[in-house]
Design a protein around this nucleic acid. Structure first.
Lengths: 192, 192
DNA sequence: ACGGACATGTAAGCAGTTACATGATTGC
DNA sequence: GCAATCATGTAACTGCTTACATGTCCGT
């Protein structure tokens, strides 16, 4: 339970939230660059409470319980300590790039299919981002201290998805111009 | 053992390699978007062999063994089946973006530190990419069927790292222009 | 003689996911 | 009356990493 705890601590920084709320907030705000599976939130919260980083209090709406968690002073200290530590390099795996890397072993049509499939996904993502911008971010007051940072993370997503689209289009062009290299066979070493 | 197997199968497509060689090749070529820890290669190779996707033959240089693995027809079939399947969305976690998302709870100086730290890392990565381009890629013959695809994956890295740098510089500018919002305090809800 | 690269593996552990389990409330 | 959403959790599994274990060969 290494990084999830800081995501949760950060979510609780301004005001108390229930586990369920944290899940919803993450889905609507950080899912672009940070997501936890639903089930993982509750055990982490439990552990954080045991360590005194958060404290909880149950609210009831009728019979239904809502356990609200509040960050403690010790939790804030942890959060800031994390902020101060150098950000670790993330090992991000890109399955599409792996496929493209092996492109010479795939026929051209299939490579193009991979590109076009991804391009479509990029378009969808771009649309989602634009929607977040108009539906959510633009409605937040400029005085809201978080707004500038929420905007930054969104902008990061927009810029990268545009870059990805540009790269794909460039690759498609290169591919379509290139003669099909299927004729040029590789000398294959095999034993037996 | 889900995706690693295809990375390995792909590496063996043209010619047999030992586990150790695969590790080296990955370090020098796909580490940008795909990496496996050293220890993970051997068990996967073992499993692939048990499934008949690769077959091995030991070579000896004196006492030292080198187990060379060759892909089988069944392995190639698996590889192509993977190529044909839609590429899964990857959940990539970006710790820096998470920190920035919580920027309102951090003092401005520390946010700038996070940006500048990442900017330096971007510069280093860019340098590495350029080195790969001049030291390795430019020396590969244009007729080499893999070259075009190796170039594409490298170009992807270069474009994204440039985008990231651009984004960071933009964010730093925004931050430096903005008045320190520390005065505007958030109404904090706490219980008790 | 010794460190570093070459070479292959095992064991333990952990972070995170999927699937499961339970039940209340709201809206149609 | 039923589906969707609200709400909290557990259990089992899996994929991956870290650390360990062993030994050879080569250059200085």
């Amino acid at each position: 339970m290494n990084k999830s705890r800081y995501a949760i601590l950060g979510m609780l920084f301004d005001e108390p939230h229930s586990g369920y709320e944290i899940i919803q907030i993450m889905k609507n705000s950080t899912s672009n660059f940070w997501q936890e599976s639903d089930a993982s939130i509750y055990p982490v919260l439990k552990k954080l409470e045991a360590e005194g980083k958060v404290k909880s209090q149950s609210e009831f709406a009728g019979e239904r319980e809502r356990k609200m968690f509040e960050i403690t002073a010790s939790g804030k200290k942890d959060f800031w300590a994390w902020i101060g530590r150098p950000t670790e390099k993330e090992k991000h795996r890109d399955e599409m790039l792996l496929k493209i890397f092996f492109g010479a072993n795939i026929n051209k049509k299939d490579v193009l299919k991979i590109f076009k499939f991804k391009l479509k996904r990029c378009k969808d993502i771009k649309k989602t981002y634009k929607q977040i911008e108009t539906d959510i971010l633009s409605k937040v007051s400029d005085k809201h201290p978080h707004k500038i940072f929420w905007y930054m993370t969104l902008e990061n997503g927009i810029m990268h998805v545009k870059t990805e689209s540009k790269w794909i289009k460039k690759c498609i062009q290169i591919l379509e111009k290139s003669k099909d290299k299927n004729g040029i066979k590789f000398k294959k070493k095999t034993f037996k």
